Simulated scan of single mutants.
Amino acid sequence: MTLSYDSNGDGPALVLLHSSVCDRGMWDPQVPTLYDAGYQVVRCDFRGFGDSPVANQPYSDAADVCDLLDYLNLECAALIGSSHGGEVALEVAAQRPRQVPALVLLCSAIPGHVPGPELRAFTERKTALLAANDISGAVDLSITTWLGSDASAEVSENVRRMQRRAFEMQTSARFDSVSEPVELTRITASCLTISGAHDLLDFREIAADMPKRIAGARHLELPWASHFPSLERPAAVMDLLRDFLNEEYPTRRN
């Protein structure tokens, strides 16, 4: 197995997919509660994040996740994705609609999105800082761009650590993940898409448009949230996850 992962529990499977700022540690606040609710909770590090090595050949994060599902013999798994993790979840759900019955997308990206001015400006600034080997500056930019004021000092420090580790690992990377064009209308999963009112416009628009792309998808915008609501107010987001999963992907305990 290429990806580093952990799996706990033996109920219906939930696969947690992290953003491109963090690694699987971003889900630490949610894992114990989801496990206690009766789910098998699986989370992985994409290549070049956390404990997964950088790639030495062309690859796809979505293909890696599909390989993980096969490796764990998960015939059915709900996917919960944050930002880039949401983009990967959409690719997997479109490629394997029968295998993915439920999706939760937190401030998700989307395959094929053309960046707007805000996101493009962030990417250009980050690229310039990394090209100048100013990793600290690039980390600071990520924190100020993506993490809302509700995040605690401890959360901010954890995100800072995860982002720095990713930047340091990826300086030696020869390949980035590639996304294949996907037909989102193939997705049959029940879908909850969540946006933050203080996030960049790109992600707010992606979330608001999701019900037009996926039949039956529901959109909820959180008035207090920025790009990482699951880190900014973990308990509030856990309540939303619990309500959605109880309805759409329950365990025997529900």
Rank of each mutant, 00 (worst) to 15 (best):
M1P: 10
G9I: 06
P12R: 06
A13V: 09
S20E: 13
C22G: 06
D28Y: 13
P29G: 10
V31W: 08
P32D: 08
Y35I: 01
D36F: 04
G38M: 13
Y39S: 08
R43F: 10
D45I: 05
G50V: 04
G50R: 07
S52G: 05
V54I: 15
A55Y: 07
Q57L: 05
S60H: 09
A63C: 05
D64H: 11
V65K: 03
V65D: 01
D70C: 09
E75P: 06
A77Q: 07
A78S: 12
I80Q: 05
S83M: 06
E87G: 15
V88G: 03
A89C: 09
E91R: 04
E91H: 14
A93E: 03
L103Y: 03
C107N: 15
A109S: 15
G112F: 09
H113V: 07
P117Y: 01
E118H: 14
L119T: 13
R120Y: 13
F122N: 13
E124I: 06
R125T: 15
K126Q: 14
T127V: 09
A128T: 11
D134F: 04
S136D: 15
G137A: 08
A138T: 12
L141V: 12
S142T: 13
I143C: 06
I143P: 11
A153Y: 07
V155I: 15
V159C: 11
R160T: 09
R161N: 11
R164E: 12
E168K: 08
Q170I: 02
S172W: 04
A173T: 06
R174A: 11
R174D: 04
F175H: 14
E183Y: 01
L184N: 02
T188Y: 05
S190R: 14
L192E: 03
T193D: 06
A197Y: 02
L201T: 14
E205H: 10
A208T: 14
P211Y: 05
R213G: 02
A217E: 04
R218Q: 15
L222R: 12
P234F: 07
R242C: 04
R253I: 05
R253G: 00
R253L: 14
